[in-house]
Design a protein around this nucleic acid. Structure first.
Length: 222
DNA sequence: ACCCAGGGTCATA
DNA sequence: TATGACCATGGG
């Protein structure tokens, strides 16, 4: 069995364990694709619990829609999303995104690379946000790499060598070793986040950690 | 009183 | 191309 085959088998095993432990995640936690995009921008370097509060505020104002956000005064929007932090920057990003939401929607039907390039052209949409939008709003099979994913890869020793933590490197690793399927990519990323929060974030190590070796490494400081 | 969270941009070397 | 400063709130 070649190296690539081994990595495929390893990922399959890890997936079975995570899936068995946590069950289907059915991400993204949102009611509409537009809500996914808003959440993707608001959660940049921000705890999701803080984002939820902003979503609630927007819904309370019945303003979680492209027209409502693009026509809303910037100051009002910034007040509504204050809990997500970086509210001045994110307010501007949201307004630009909302005003041009038709272009965002178009990317859901494009070849992935083209859609990705289009999204990266927006101010405030970088690699992770672009991939999150394509996968979770557009249901396109592109793998999302976030801080949890990088830690996961590093701590379970899935990738070695220099630059093994780079965004593209990690993304390519998963895409080369998994069937290119949006549903699978969706579950994989959600399970990594779920596992990181449930098991590996705080000590002590939970008793029934499904991936105890990785958790031990994590607490050892790598 | 610190640390960090489901990043991205911009300036500098 | 590769770091570093900056954006800012809320929970541990």
């Amino acid at each position: 069995m070649d190296k690539k085959g081994n990595q495929k088998k390893l990922l399959k095993q890890l997936y079975q364990i995570l899936q068995g432990e946590y069950g289907p995640q059915n991400w993204w936690p949102a009611e509409t694709p537009f809500e996914v995009v808003v959440g993707a921008i608001l959660t940049q370097n921000t705890a999701w619990t803080n984002v939820e509060k902003s979503i609630v505020q927007l819904k309370k104002e019945k303003s979680l829609a492209p027209d409502a956000i693009s026509s809303m005064p910037l100051e009002k929007l910034q007040k509504l999303i204050r809990s997500s932090g970086f509210f001045k920057t994110k307010g501007r990003r949201l307004k630009e995104m909302a005003a041009r939401y038709a272009e965002i929607e178009d990317t859901y039907g494009m070849p992935i690379e083209k859609g990705r390039e289009t999204l990266l052209g927006f101010n405030g949409i970088g690699p992770e946000t672009a991939d999150s939008i394509l996968l979770y709003a557009g249901n396109r099979p592109t793998f999302v790499v976030d801080a949890y994913t990088k830690r996961f890869v590093k701590r379970y020793g899935l990738l070695a060598g220099s630059n093994s933590n780079g965004y593209e490197r990690v993304k390519t690793f998963f895409e080369r070793n998994l069937e290119r399927d949006a549903r699978l990519f969706n579950e994989w990323h959600a399970l990594i986040v779920k596992h990181s929060k449930e098991c590996c974030r705080k000590k002590p190590l939970c008793g029934g950690c499904p991936l105890s070796n990785g958790c031990k490494k994590m607490f050892a400081g790598e």
